[in-house]
Design a protein around this nucleic acid. Structure first.
Length: 478
RNA sequence: GCCCCCGUCGUCUAGCCAGGCCUAGGACACCGGCCUUUCACGCCGGCGACACGGGUUCGAAUCCCGUCGGGGGCACCA
C-alpha cells in the first residue's frame, strides 16, 4: 500500500510550488490506490500560525485535493500536527542518546556564525567543526554549571557516501563530509525538521516521499537518521522546482504566487489543478486540457520531467479560459461567478446571471473579466467612449437609432429574432448596412464600439431598458 | 567557495532509459488569414529549439567525456 504525505509548514498562504507538490502527492496516491496524509509541520514556533493552517486546508480543498488522514480528519497514525508530537520525538531522541548517535553541543550561535563565515571566506564548506563532539562528562558538567545552553547534534560518520535512488533524479550520491554534525534538538528542547520529518514519515508508514527539489541535499542527513533509528527508508522523489520569469525560484518577488491570489483573481480550481500538473508532467496525448480523473488514471511519478519549470502565467490564463468557456456546466459556472458579479456591484437574480454568463462566457479568460464584459447587462447610464461618438454624430447613424427606437417601441418584447428582423428592415429603409447599421445601435446601447453580441444583449436586458438607453442616446447626440 | 541537480522552439513539453520511425511532434505566446455587425471565441497557416566541443557508432536530441550556462542547497527554517 502506497502512503504519501504532504507536509507544509503553516507560515503563510499556500504557495504555488507547495500546491503543486500537494497535487503530485495526491494524484500519485489516487493513481496507486494508496493514502494521502496531511501533516502540519509547525515546529518553527516563530513562524507558524494557527490561522495559516486553516487557510492552507481551505486552499487545498478548493483545489480539489482530498486527504485520507490529517489534523482535521484524524487517522491511525496521529497526531498530525508536529507540535503535538513532542513526546514521540523525545522518545526517539532517547534512543539516539542510548545508541550514541547524538551528543550535546555547547557552542553559541555567535561562535558558529563566526566559524561559518571563516569557512566560507577560506572556500571550505561551512560545516560544524565537531568541537563538542568528544567532550568528557566532566567538561559537560562544568559548562552546564555555568548555565550554558546546549543543543543535541547528530554524530555524522566520517567520509561515508550516501547513495539513494531518486524516482525522478535517478541515482544520487552525496558524501556526508559535505555537512558536519547537525543539530536535531534546539537549545530550547524543540526538535528540528530533519529529525522530526524522519520520525514522522517512518511512524506514519510513508512509503514514498514526494517533495520539492530544494530538499534533495537534506536527504542524506535524513537517511542517516533512518539508519540510526533502524527505520526502513522510504523511496524518494524530488520534484524540480518552479521558477519565475527570471529563472530564479518562484517567490513573492514574482507577483501573485499564492493559490488564494489566483482564486481571487477569477481562476477556477479545475484550471489550477490542470495547469499546475502541467509544470513538470505531461499527458501522453497532444491535448493538454485534461480532467482530474484522467490525470489520476494516467499519472506516474517516474514520468515527471526532471528540469526546473518556469511558471507560465499566460498559459494558465488560457487554460482557465478553456474551462470557463468550454468545460464547466453553465449552472455551476454561474454559481461561481456570483461573487464576481457582486464584487463589481452587478446585482440581479440567479436566472439573470445565468443568461449573462451564457452570453459572455466565450469572451472570458478569468471570472474577473466579468467586470468588463458583463457591464452592458447592468449599467444603463454609461459614458460614451470618445472613439465611439462619431457613429452617432453622423447623420445617418443618428437616423438609424431613431428608427430603431420607433420600431422597438411598437413591440411587446424584444427577442434576438425581433432584433434581426428590425435591423433588416432598417437596412432596406435607410439603405445602410454593416458597421453603418450596427455600430450606431451598439454605441447607443453600450457606449462602446466593441463588446457582446447586440442581439443577445437586447433580448436579455429587455424592451424597457433598451428604450431607456436609446432615448438617452438620442437626447445626448440630438 | 564547496556539494548536488538540470540544460529540446520565448515559455510548458513529447522524444532520451531500450541510438535509425525526428528534414524533432504538441501546447501557450507572437505574427498573418478566414469567420463575423464590433471585441472576443473558433478555424487555418506561419515563425521558432536538440547549449557548445570532442568521442563511440554505418548512424546520436538520444550513449560517454569535457566546457559553458542555469538552478538548488550548504541554519538552533521547513
Amino acid at each position: 500500500m502506497v502512503r504519501v504525505r504532504f507536509a507544509p509548514s503553516p507560515t503563510g498562504y499556500l504557495h504555488l510550488g507547495n500546491a503543486r507538490t500537494a497535487l503530485f502527492n495526491y494524484v500519485y496516491a489516487r493513481h496507486t490506490g494508496g493514502k494521502l496524509v496531511l501533516r502540519i509541520e509547525d515546529t518553527d514556533k516563530e513562524r507558524s500560525k494557527k490561522e495559516y493552517e486553516e487557510m492552507l486546508i481551505d486552499d487545498l480543498k478548493w483545489l480539489g485535493i482530498e486527504w485520507d488522514e490529517g489534523p482535521d480528519v484524524g487517522g491511525d497514525y496521529g497526531p498530525y500536527r508536529q507540535s503535538e508530537r513532542t513526546d514521540i520525538y523525545n522518545q526517539y531522541l532517547e534512543k539516539l542518546k542510548e545508541s550514541g548517535h547524538v551528543y550535546k553541543c555547547y557552542c553559541t550561535p555567535e561562535e558558529l556564525e563566526e566559524e561559518r563565515k571563516k569557512a566560507l571566506a577560506e572556500g571550505r564548506p561551512p560545516r560544524y567543526s565537531g568541537k563538542c563532539r568528544n567532550l568528557s562528562l566532566e567538561e559537560q558538567k562544568k559548562l552546564e554549571e555555568q548555565g550554558i545552553p546546549y543543543v543535541w547534534r547528530f554524530r555524522v560518520p566520517d567520509g561515508e557516501t550516501i547513495v539513494f535512488e531518486d524516482l525522478i533524479k535517478g541515482t544520487v550520491e552525496i558524501n556526508v563530509n559535505e555537512f558536519g554534525d547537525f543539530v536535531i534538538i534546539r537549545s530550547d528542547g524543540s526538535p528540528v525538521y530533519n529529525f522530526v520529518v524522519v520520525v514522522d514519515d517512518a511512524l506514519m508508514k510513508i512509503t514514498h516521499v514526494i517533495r520539492g527539489e530544494d530538499h534533495l541535499s537534506n536527504t542524506p542527513k535524513q537517511i542517516l537518521i533512518y539508519r540510526a533509528l533502524g527505520f526502513q527508508e522510504p523511496k524518494f522523489a524530488h520534484l524540480p522546482i518552479i521558477l519565475g520569469e527570471d529563472k530564479s525560484k518562484l517567490s513573492k518577488r514574482h507577483g501573485a504566487v499564492s493559490v488564494r491570489a489566483f482564486r481571487d483573481d477569477g481562476y477556477v480550481s479545475e484550471a489550477m489543478f490542470n495547469g499546475l500538473m502541467l509544470l513538470g508532467w505531461h499527458p501522453k496525448r497532444d491535448s493538454e486540457v485534461i480532467s482530474k480523473e484522467e490525470i489520476i488514471q494516467e499519472f506516474d511519478i517516474e514520468d515527471v520531467h526532471n528540469a526546473p519549470a518556469v511558471f507560465d502565467r499566460a498559459k494558465l490564463k488560457w487554460l482557465n479560459g478553456v474551462y470557463i468557456r468550454e468545460i464547466l456546466d453553465l449552472e455551476d459556472l454561474t454559481r461561481r461567478a456570483i461573487p464576481f458579479f457582486e464584487k463589481f456591484g452587478y446585482k440581479a437574480d440567479f436566472e439573470y446571471y445565468k443568461k449573462v454568463m451564457e452570453a459572455i462566457r466565450d469572451s472570458l479568460e478569468t471570472l474577473m473579466d466579468i467586470g468588463e464584459r458583463a457591464r452592458p447587462f447592468f449599467i444603463d447610464n454609461f459614458p460614451y467612449d470618445e472613439d465611439a461618438k462619431s457613429f452617432l454624430e453622423d447623420e445617418t447613424g443618428y437616423k438609424v437609432v431613431q428608427l430603431f427606437y420607433e420600431k422597438v417601441k411598437q413591440l411587446d418584447n424584444i427577442t434576438k429574432e425581433d432584433f434581426k428582423k428590425i435591423t433588416k428592415e432598417i437596412q432596406k429603409e435607410l439603405k445602410v448596412k454593416g458597421k453603418g447599421l450596427f455600430m450606431p445601435i451598439r454605441v447607443a446601447l453600450t457606449g462602446k464600439t466593441s463588446g457582446v453580441d447586440i442581439a443577445t444583449l437586447v433580448e436579455v436586458i429587455g424592451k424597457d431598458r433598451v428604450l431607456h438607453r436609446l432615448e438617452r442616446a438620442l437626447e445626448y447626440f440630438g
